[in-house]
Amino acid sequence: MKRLVFSSGDLPDELDDRTRFNRWREIFAWRYGSADFTRLADQPFKARSEFLQISSLGLVRSESTVQRFRRTAQQAVDGSGAYLIAFNNGMSSTTVKQQGREQVYAPQQMWLGCTADTIDVGNKTGTKWVTLIVPATPLLQLVPRAEDMVAKPIDATRPAVRHLRRYMEFLLTADEFGDDNGLSGRLDAMLMDLVALSLGANMDVAEIAEGRGLRAARTREIVGRIQEGFSNPTFSAHVVGRILGLSARYVQELVQETGLGFTARVLELRLLKARAMLADPVHDRLKISDLAFTCGFNEVSYFNRCFRRRFGASPTEFRHSTRTEI
């Protein structure tokens, strides 16, 4: 899965602002279909989008000084007929008009759109969206009444909405990854499950999605919390559970499914941080006991044992060996 970037900054430097905007519109129409744009009058034109193809889905992060995006009925004929799951990532409200409805979405709110219909989207400070492009057929199989939800408020209190947004942002910020063992297909299925839950799928579909998409998203969130908090000596599964509203046992169960349990994962991260600090001359004046505590260990003797078992030398010996090599 490769990331494709479309940016006005890649156009020739010698273009003036007006010409840059017109050239960008031409390329946009060639790539994504024709549309009408209104730019912010008081700012230089800028537009950047990142696109990630995940099996049948498309994931896009876009930001621009475009104030209004509009597609007429004639222009919509060229569209793919897909649905758009979009989050307003800007600092001001976005107004969406589609299918005779008009709805205002505050920052971080989610909305559903359709590329097969006329659409009018406006934001007084420019666009900043994260959007998931979903083919119509699989979405309607999961949520048959999805068309009735276009340009209507979506309940942001649903856990699936929060997980869907965070997972979309995670995929866009993660390093490029291959498609070993059908990873793209599994991500596709998980995202579709979260979309179905976010849109209020019927009970049968929701039960299936709960066991796949939401579980996988929770696991990803727990792993992220571990990476953020492992160096705190009081960090534990109970701490993560309180933050996410889950039991410590369930937190441990989900992490175990990744192939490395909670305790083992935390210990490995602490040891890797300790090794990096010991190898860095910047920390030479830091006592081993202080370094151990900084990395999350309460007892220096336990830290010494774990470090020797993992790297074949005591922390002091390891630090000395890296200086000898220099």
Rank of each mutant, 00 (worst) to 15 (best):
R3N: 10
L4A: 15
L4N: 08
F6T: 15
S7R: 13
D10M: 13
D13M: 04
D13E: 11
D17L: 13
R18M: 09
T19I: 04
R20M: 02
N22Q: 13
R23A: 04
R23Y: 04
W24V: 02
W24A: 00
R25V: 07
E26A: 03
I27W: 05
A35Y: 07
F37Y: 06
R39L: 00
P44C: 08
P44I: 14
F45C: 10
S49L: 10
S49C: 09
E50S: 14
E50C: 14
L52E: 04
S56Q: 15
L57I: 15
L57F: 15
E63Q: 04
V66E: 06
Q67R: 08
R71Y: 03
A73S: 06
Q75L: 07
Q75M: 13
G79P: 04
S80M: 11
Y83I: 09
A86K: 03
S92M: 07
V96H: 05
K97N: 08
R101C: 03
E102L: 03
Q103C: 11
A106K: 15
Q109F: 06
W111N: 00
W111C: 02
L112K: 06
L112Y: 00
L112D: 01
L112I: 07
T115I: 07
D117G: 05
T118P: 10
T118F: 05
K124A: 09
K128M: 10
K128C: 14
V130T: 13
V130G: 08
T131W: 01
V134C: 02
V134T: 06
A136F: 01
V143R: 00
R145V: 12
D148V: 07
M149G: 01
K152I: 06
D155I: 12
T157Q: 15
P159Y: 13
R162W: 15
H163I: 12
H163Y: 14
H163L: 14
R166T: 10
Y167C: 13
M168T: 10
F177L: 15
G178K: 05
D180G: 14
G182R: 14
L183H: 11
L183W: 12
S184M: 12
S184T: 09
L187I: 08
M190W: 15
M192G: 13
A196F: 15
L197P: 03
M203V: 08
M203H: 02
M203W: 02
M203F: 08
A209N: 05
R215C: 10
A216V: 11
T219E: 06
R225K: 11
Q227P: 09
Q227N: 13
E228Y: 08
E228H: 09
E228A: 08
G229D: 05
S231L: 07
S231M: 10
A237D: 07
A237G: 07
G241W: 04
R242Q: 13
L246T: 12
Q252W: 07
E253T: 11
Q256D: 12
E257G: 09
T258V: 08
L260P: 00
A264H: 12
R265Y: 15
L267H: 00
L267E: 00
K273Q: 13
R275E: 09
A276G: 06
M277R: 02
M277G: 00
P281Y: 03
H283E: 10
R285H: 13
K287A: 01
I288T: 00
S289G: 03
L291T: 01
F293I: 00
T294P: 02
G296H: 02
G296R: 01
V300A: 00
R305G: 00
R310H: 06
R310I: 09
S314V: 02
P315W: 03
T316G: 03
S321K: 07
R323F: 02
T324M: 05
I326L: 09
I326T: 05
